[in-house]
Structures are given as structure tokens and as C-alpha cells.
């Protein structure tokens, strides 16, 4: 469905292994100790991500690069979820909301990819959600559960899970802004603020839609 492709096709390792191996490089820029955290909700990166190299004079940091890479995967899963709506008997209001998420986030993925490429960093493609686990992203079980639901039950599951998903995006933004020196790059800063504003409002909308089911 989504046509974007990343040229590099490095072997993909299981998410669990990746999370252990690369935890430090992507989850917690303040703490560079590899075994710093074992929180199961900690973000995981695919093995296909190269180590981040920050060019001299750049104002962006590793946290910015990992944020943009991780948010691609995060958005890609939201798009996958949104595209389930039409085949799962979603109501008209939800279908439209899902279409908005789809159209909004696909262009943001292109924006993030363009930023990463322009700055010489690996740019994940839209399949990256299979191998990267960012805050709020659905587990394999939750995905199965969503895919198995139809009609009003799909609507309910979609809203509950998408609220969880959006809350994860807000956490990613909060974590980014809490990282010293991060989000000084103007593209990252503007984008992160947009994510915060728009997804906060969308959570409100979804809570209302859920109440109206």
C-alpha cells in the first residue's frame, strides 16, 4: 500500500534482540550505559540503523536523529492501523478520522525521511514498524486483536489503541524536549511541536468519539 522504500536492506533481527543491543543508542541519550534500562516499554531500534554520526557544526544531536527515525516507525504503524478501517466496517466518522491520520502522517514520514537523508542519516522506510518498538506502539497481540474486530467493536478497539499510540508519540516528544541540547534543530523542533499539538487534539477527539460510540 505504501510505496516508500529505503535503499538499504540490512538483515532484520528480532525486535527483542535489537532492543537489547541498541537500547542505549536510541532510547536514552542522557545515559549512555548500554544496560541502563530493562523497562519493557523502552523503545527498540532495528538493527538496520547505523550508529549516528553528528557532523561538526551541526546543531542536531543523536536524540534528534533517533527521534526522527523512531517517529517514522511510529507513524507507519498508525498508517497501517488507519488503513484497516475501511475493511473492518468502521463507522463513517471513524473512517474519515482514519483517513485524516493516514494523509497527515504519510507526509510527515516523507518530511522526516527528507530530514534524515539531508543530514546523512539512515532513513527508515514504512515497513520499519515491524522491527522498531516505540512508546505506545501496538504489540503483536494488540494488532491481532484489532485486525480480528469488526464494525462497532473495531471502532472501539481502534480508538482505544490509537489513543495509546498517540500518547506514545507525546511521550517521545516530551522525552526529546527533556534531553539536554536536543530539539535545537529548527526542523526537528517545529515538527515535534506540531506532533504535540495535533496529536493532543486528536486524543481529545478520539476520547469524544469513544464516548459517542
Amino acid at each position: 500500500m505504501i510505496q516508500l522504500r529505503m535503499p538499504s536492506s540490512l538483515p532484520r533481527i528480532a525486535a527483542v534482540a535489537a532492543s537489547i543491543a541498541l537500547l542505549a543508542s536510541c532510547s536514552d541519550a542522557k545515559n549512555q550505559t548500554p544496560a541502563a534500562k530493562t523497562d519493557s516499554a523502552a523503545p527498540a531500534m532495528s538493527m538496520s540503523m547505523s550508529p549516528v554520526k553528528i557532523p561538526a557544526g551541526a546543531v542536531f544531536t543523536e536524540a534528534d536523529v533517533r527521534f526522527m527515525q523512531g517517529m517514522i516507525a511510529h507513524h507507519a504503524q498508525a498508517i497501517y492501523m488507519s488503513r484497516l478501517a475501511s475493511g473492518h466496517g468502521a463507522n463513517a466518522h471513524l473512517l474519515k478520522f482514519a483517513q485524516k491520520i493516514d494523509q497527515s502522517q504519510i507526509v510527515e514520514i516523507r518530511l522526516m525521511q527528507a530530514w534524515l537523508r539531508r543530514n546523512g542519516q539512515d532513513a527508515p522506510d514504512t515497513s520499519s514498524w515491524h522491527s522498531m518498538q516505540m512508546p505506545g506502539m501496538l504489540t503483536a497481540d494488540q494488532l491481532k486483536q484489532l485486525d480480528a474486530a469488526k464494525g462497532p467493536e473495531f471502532d472501539r478497539q481502534f480508538l482505544v489503541l490509537m489513543i495509546q499510540h498517540h500518547n506514545g508519540a507525546l511521550k517521545m516528544v516530551t522525552d526529546l524536549f527533556a534531553t539536554p541540547q536536543a530539539a535545537q534543530d529548527v526542523d526537528v523542533s517545529v515538527f515535534a511541536n506540531d506532533v504535540q499539538t495535533v496529536q493532543t487534539a486528536e486524543i481529545g477527539t478520539m476520547q469524544q468519539m469513544l464516548g459517542n460510540l
Binding site: A85, S86, N91, A92, H93, L95, K96, A98, Q99, P152, V160, I163, N167, L170, T200, A201, I203, G204, Q207, L210, G211, N212, L213
Partner: peptide, 27 residues
Amino acid sequence: RGARGGDSAQVATQGAARPDPRQPTGP
């Protein structure tokens, strides 16, 4: 193109369960 319209959208029923707001979602 649009998913608008249609008549399957449900009107709110009294007492429908709503999630506890995790944080304010207003501006």
C-alpha cells in the same frame, strides 16, 4: 475520496463509558 457522510455514526448514548482523561486535551 471521502469517508464523510453515511449514517452509521452513532449518536451518543447516555452514560456511555468514557476513558479517564490522561491529560488535558484542550488547547
